[in-house]
């Protein structure tokens, strides 16, 4: 029973990591940029949702939709204003730039909403389901179901919509995509919008169970580990990597001495990099001359 209980809470935590990791992977695949501020974008999404749903008192569904729209616009704007001038700069510069962005976002959120932790109350907060001894909160169910639905939507989007297919083409070969008449720069903005939207979804899903404060974005680092475990560049890999890390973390907290729970994500990451550096679902191949 205990094991099942841990498994469920691990999976629901892992889904959040997975969703943030999904944002990393999308941006990396399409633009070859690494966005270290993905966790902070999730934090911002949680705060925006908190503002709409709790401070302004809008109906929850409307708050969710508005949050997604606002955050998608934010993502596209960030790409246009900050990342676009960096095209062609070494990857190290872009990495440092997004780290700097993370700092600014964290301080900005602290200035606007204050540094004390808040809780997002939702219509489904507080309910529990008892499945023969395994007690699951509604919030955790919503996280797992929400992730599954989002994955399905993303799958359909990439498979059938023109924009999704254009994104895939861009991530496979920018030059060829450009020759085919795909507006690569606009696709970049759209990818950033999409990934900010996914991060905001993660923020909305995790906010009812975690505290909303400017430092919550630090779980982005664990999501990074998830993305690498899954194989940087694979979308299902990101979710799976997130779930693996979430579950292991829960078990480490219970069965291993203190300190292992905080580090388990990174230990998995280092072991993974040693044993199978290309990740579970390898998509990256060696560079050719």
């Amino acid at each position: 029973m205990e094991v099942l209980q841990l498994l469920v809470s691990g999976v629901s935590q892992g889904c959040v990591y997975g969703l943030i990791a999904l944002g990393f992977v999308l941006i990396y695949k399409a633009t070859e940029m690494v966005n270290f501020a993905q966790g902070e974008i999730m934090m911002l999404g949680a705060f925006v949702a908190f503002t709409f749903a709790n401070l302004l008192g809008w109906p929850f569904w409307m708050a969710v939709i508005m949050t997604l729209l606002v955050m998608a616009a934010f993502g596209a704007l960030t790409e246009r204003l900050i990342l676009r001038p960096m095209i062609g700069e070494p990857p190290f510069s872009v990495l440092m730039l997004t780290i700097g962005m993370g700092y600014v976002l964290r301080a900005g959120a602290g200035a606007i909403w204050g540094n004390e932790p808040r809780t997002l109350t939702t219509p489904y907060s507080g309910g529990i389901v008892d499945l023969g001894g395994v007690i699951i909160g509604y919030e955790n169910i919503v996280i797992i179901v929400g992730t599954a639905v989002l994955c399905l939507v993303l799958f359909l989007f990439f498979r059938y919509s023109r924009v999704g297919i254009a994104m895939q083409a861009t991530s496979q070969n920018q030059l060829a995509a450009y020759y085919m008449g795909i507006p690569v720069k606009r696709i970049y903005s759209l990818v950033w919008a999409l990934s900010a939207g996914i991060a905001a979804t993660a923020g909305i899903l995790v906010a009812p169970v975690a505290l909303v404060d400017p430092l919550m974005g630090f779980i982005g680092i664990k999501a990074f580990a998830a993305a690498i475990v899954g194989g940087f560049g694979s979308l299902p890999g990101a979710i799976l990597g997130g779930i693996i890390i979430g579950v292991v973390e829960q078990f480490a907290a219970l069965y291993l001495p203190p300190g292992f729970s905080e580090t388990s994500a990174y230990v998995i990451l280092l072991v993974m990099l040693l044993v199978r550096p290309e990740g579970l679902f390898a998509t990256m191949l060696q560079k050719k001359v």
Partner: peptide, 22 residues
């Protein structure tokens, strides 16, 4: 008196330097 002014300026300086004077 804003808390967290220092990290924000760190981040801002980093961004400005990287964009305008790599």
């Amino acid at each position: 008196q804003m808390p967290g002014l220092e990290p924000a300026l760190f981040g801002l300086i980093l961004i400005l330097v990287l964009i305008y004077e790599p």
